[in-house]
């Protein structure tokens, strides 16, 4: 059974950081979905996804981001991503995610992309 974990923490500017760890595939996507749903239920729409410890993402995993992005953006928030390994970035890149999402090098940079208020 593949292993996947999400850790959520808050940082300044009402930004919530989701740290993804492990192998995100069809078996483990419910864990990520629950985490997004939890943030949305609490009306937390400024989200940075830190992918430093994400080893793999399958098409089902990519689908989770697509499922939530509209809701998040409709509430003036965004999902920004950071710290991807070249291998994981390649998967997002092939599908054209960099044209649809802010994908940056560091969590700091991702957080900075949210307007200050």
């Amino acid at each position: 059974m593949s292993d996947f974990k999400v850790n959520i923490r808050e940082r300044s500017g009402s930004i919530h950081v989701m740290e993804l760890k492990g192998y995100l595939d069809a078996h483990t996507t419910p864990i990520l979905e629950d985490s997004f749903q939890k943030l949305l239920n609490e009306k937390k729409y400024r989200i940075v996804v830190n992918c430093r410890e994400l080893n793999y993402i399958s098409s089902a995993g990519l689908g989770v981001f697509m499922a939530f992005i509209e809701d998040v953006r409709a509430n003036e928030g965004d999902i920004k991503m950071s710290d991807m390994s070249p291998k994981v970035f390649n998967i997002f890149d092939l599908l054209g995610f960099p044209m649809l999402y802010d994908i940056v090098k560091t969590e700091e940079e991702a957080a900075g992309k949210f307007s200050k208020n």
Partner: peptide, 15 residues
């Protein structure tokens, strides 16, 4: 060869 392009069914319109 990797021409630029987003997957089908992800985003409608101009983008």
């Amino acid at each position: 060869i990797k021409p630029s392009g987003i997957g089908l069914g992800i985003k409608a319109g101009r983008i």
